[in-house]
Amino acid sequence: MPARPSAGCVFVELSLFKNLIVFRIGEAWQPDAQQLEDALANDLFAPCSPTQALAFGWAPPRGDEHGALIEIVGGQWLLKLAREQRLLPSSVVNDHVDTLAQRVEAETGRKPGKKLRRDLKDQALLDLLPQAFTKRSATRVWIDPTQRLLMVDAGSAGRADEVTTMLVRASSDLPLSLINTAESPAACMAAWLADGTAPEGFQIERECELKGHDDEKPVVRYARHPLDTDEVRQHLTAGKLPTRLALSWRERVGFTLTDTMAIKKINFLDLALEGQTAGEGDDAFDADAALATGLLSKMIPALIDGLGGEQAFGEAAAAAPAPALAPAAEAVEGEAPW
């Protein structure tokens, strides 16, 4: 469930940005949207071939077939990484491997060993992939060139890694590193809950998850529940730390902060829409983008400040290569529809 807003606030559904993982772009980077777009064009999205399990590529953010790969709204850059995956349940693959193994045993009189079964699994995948259903999804990407921030609308680190890997492959002079704050989000969230006060502009809402660090790793979850209670403080005193905490910012944005500084379950409150008019097509895209980036480009630096400010590791650390592509996986929280 999304974070519950303060009294008098109502969440409003927008199409952009459900979750954000925030990266710092190194100081050496020189913003050039056209240059980056030309580089992205070398990795356009193409559907999976009959024997391909997973395909990635850049697609127009507006959804137009031949549209721009970078849309600029109010100085903010918007991109979209599309993916297509062939879905093969492991049970179907294993059944086909068994069928192939029985055929080998009938022909040779011997049961296939481990090495041969691995080869048979590869053969099974080649046989079954052309018949598999495909699933398309997309990950939205937002670059704030002025603040040198890159935000990935991903519900997991693996999906964010896919984006950063593709970006660095397209433009090797785009040094990226996860934002590191001077104080850990878990310690800060614990202090906010203990004091009942969040940083200026933020308000604690009614959802959180507390986790212990002993052998049993006990977990306590609160949903639609006041958090300024003795019970919550007793859990904190016992050594449990927050892994998720619902917050709102200036009665305009609701979200959940995690102990890895991921921003999840983003929702915009009714106060954010005062004076906004509904649009259609491109107008709706521009309005959503302007509203979301306009608010979040102020909220994210305020959140970093509330976590003690950014811990700088220098340009060398920022230029470290992005992680390798994660293997194919099932759908994850926050995945955008194709």
Rank of each mutant, 00 (worst) to 15 (best):
190 A>L: 00
170 A>M: 10
269 L>F: 08
206 R>M: 01
199 P>F: 09
169 R>M: 14
228 D>V: 01
209 E>C: 09
236 L>P: 00
138 A>T: 10
235 H>F: 15
214 D>V: 12
200 E>M: 02
228 D>L: 03
268 F>H: 13
132 A>R: 05
189 M>I: 10
259 D>F: 09
201 G>V: 09
167 L>N: 07
139 T>I: 15
164 T>L: 10
211 K>P: 00
231 E>W: 00
150 L>G: 13
265 K>Y: 13
142 W>C: 02
176 L>K: 06
180 N>T: 05
191 A>F: 07
198 A>G: 13
205 E>N: 13
196 G>N: 07
178 L>G: 02
146 T>A: 14
217 K>S: 04
168 V>S: 12
208 C>A: 03
182 A>G: 01
161 D>Q: 06
234 Q>N: 13
238 A>D: 15
224 R>A: 10
187 A>F: 10
251 E>A: 15
183 E>P: 02
270 D>F: 04
170 A>N: 11
147 Q>K: 09
177 S>A: 10
258 T>C: 06
157 A>H: 04
162 E>D: 15
260 T>N: 14
156 S>M: 10
174 L>A: 03
220 V>I: 08
142 W>H: 03
271 L>E: 08
247 L>I: 04
212 G>K: 13
223 A>Y: 03
235 H>A: 14
163 V>Y: 05
162 E>C: 15
242 P>H: 06
183 E>I: 03
250 R>T: 02
245 L>K: 01
180 N>M: 05
269 L>V: 02
236 L>Y: 02
214 D>W: 14
194 A>H: 02
197 T>G: 07
266 I>F: 08
228 D>C: 04
271 L>A: 12
134 T>Q: 11
184 S>C: 02
174 L>E: 02
150 L>R: 12
218 P>T: 15
202 F>S: 01
182 A>H: 01
